[in-house]
Simulated scan of single mutants.
Amino acid sequence: MDKKVIFFEVEGGTDKGPDGYRPDTLPMVDALKERGQDAEVLFFDVTKKQQIFDYVKEHGVAYVSRINPGNLQHEEAYFTMLRELCQAGIIGMPHPDAMISYGSKDALSKLTSTNLVPDDTYAYYTIEAFKTQFPISLASTERVLKQNRGSTGEGIWRVQLMNPLAKGITEVPLDAQIKCTEAKDNHVEYWQLGEFMTFCEPYITGTNGMLIDMRFLPRITEGEIRLFMLRNRPIYVVHKKPADTEDAFSATLFSGAQYRYDQPADWQELVQNFLAQLPQVTNLLGNYDLPLIWTADFMLDTNEAGEDGYILGEMNCSCVGFTSELSLAHEVAEEIIACIHKHQAALMVP
């Protein structure tokens, strides 16, 4: 009996077409079938978790997760089922813990030993750590705080001192005036540091709560560079230029950023360096297989020698869409089949 590739979706959400599916899911199913690999879509329902598990264990060879976390009410139950499927020999695309490792903002703090992330990048898992380190970080340079939850720039703040510190001061006092710009829509708020830090405490508390603190890169105004990856291959590059207004630093469409689609060859230096770092990235993030479809976002920086450098801002692999480039479904199908053959060959090695 030929085993199937199972695509997991969930009912509802703003990412669905009129037929109830994500627009980029059925093209992948059809592309696999054209190549002789059976495939189907299953909608995850927590009340049918055991039935779904049993069906996929019996009939599946691999799963492809196409669920946007924002549409998933029972994320932990879903991830638990995916882990159990991987343990049962089903190929995970991606493994749920890879989804967490690559998608979580604290991936940045785990990659400071690479040349992709500055070493003054911090992850705060407790309010105490945040209150201790952030006033010191802010004393050295403008900062960006990123909450782990949220999307499209929500809870991502550029933080600037309104007045320079006196010479020799290495920690910003809590009554210092600061200017805070949120990436969601580039709106500006003015706070005292202590009050703003209290406002940020809910970002740290709760499930998967944490904050990333990294230096602000002024060259973000030149644009964010997104690598669209298929496993270890960059397929295309999206150049996202923020709106040309005074406080704009957000590269989301909602905030008025302009998008341009380039070929990887147009960004050869960035691509070559990132691919060279990938084995180390994989190792530092848990040694899971690279996600099937994922993205890595970079910003331009200038090193001490005055040369261009690229700083990793975040990665995403939970449910990266390609609805504007549906022809990519054929490349994805080829990659899925190659991955299945690789796993099957590995099982045959004595």
Score class of each variant (00 low, 15 high):
residue 126 T to F: 01
residue 146 K to I: 00
residue 120 D to V: 14
residue 245 T to Q: 13
residue 171 E to F: 04
residue 317 C to M: 08
residue 137 S to F: 07
residue 215 R to G: 15
residue 289 D to E: 13
residue 20 G to V: 09
residue 195 E to D: 07
residue 239 H to G: 13
residue 20 G to K: 11
residue 143 R to V: 04
residue 219 R to P: 02
residue 331 E to D: 12
residue 326 L to E: 08
residue 36 G to E: 13
residue 331 E to Y: 12
residue 134 F to W: 07
residue 103 G to F: 05
residue 241 K to G: 04
residue 198 T to N: 11
residue 62 A to V: 15
residue 306 G to Q: 10
residue 311 I to W: 08
residue 149 R to I: 01
residue 185 D to G: 14
residue 86 C to Q: 05
residue 76 E to S: 14
residue 182 E to G: 05
residue 86 C to E: 06
residue 217 L to S: 00
residue 63 Y to H: 10
residue 220 I to A: 13
residue 294 W to Y: 00
residue 185 D to R: 03
residue 318 S to C: 04
residue 66 R to D: 07
residue 34 E to F: 05
residue 57 K to H: 10
residue 126 T to L: 09
residue 96 P to E: 01
residue 115 N to D: 15
residue 241 K to Q: 04
residue 20 G to C: 12
residue 292 L to S: 08
residue 164 P to G: 09
residue 307 E to L: 11
residue 327 S to K: 12
residue 256 G to T: 04
residue 91 I to F: 09
residue 170 T to K: 12
residue 176 A to F: 11
residue 136 I to P: 11
residue 45 D to P: 13
residue 332 V to N: 10
residue 252 T to E: 03
residue 147 Q to C: 12
residue 168 G to E: 08
residue 176 A to P: 02
residue 288 Y to V: 02
residue 94 P to I: 01
residue 87 Q to I: 01
residue 9 E to F: 03
residue 6 I to V: 15
residue 77 A to Y: 14
residue 248 A to V: 12
residue 216 F to T: 07
residue 60 G to Y: 05
residue 181 T to C: 03
residue 147 Q to V: 10
residue 246 E to K: 08
residue 48 K to Q: 14
residue 82 L to N: 05
residue 40 E to D: 15
residue 154 E to K: 11
residue 210 M to Y: 13
residue 223 G to F: 00
residue 322 F to Y: 14
residue 348 M to I: 00
residue 91 I to Q: 03
residue 3 K to H: 12
residue 19 D to E: 13
residue 201 E to G: 10
residue 337 I to C: 14
residue 287 N to V: 09
residue 40 E to F: 01
residue 23 P to T: 08
residue 91 I to L: 10
residue 215 R to N: 14
residue 326 L to T: 04
residue 100 I to C: 09
residue 78 Y to R: 00
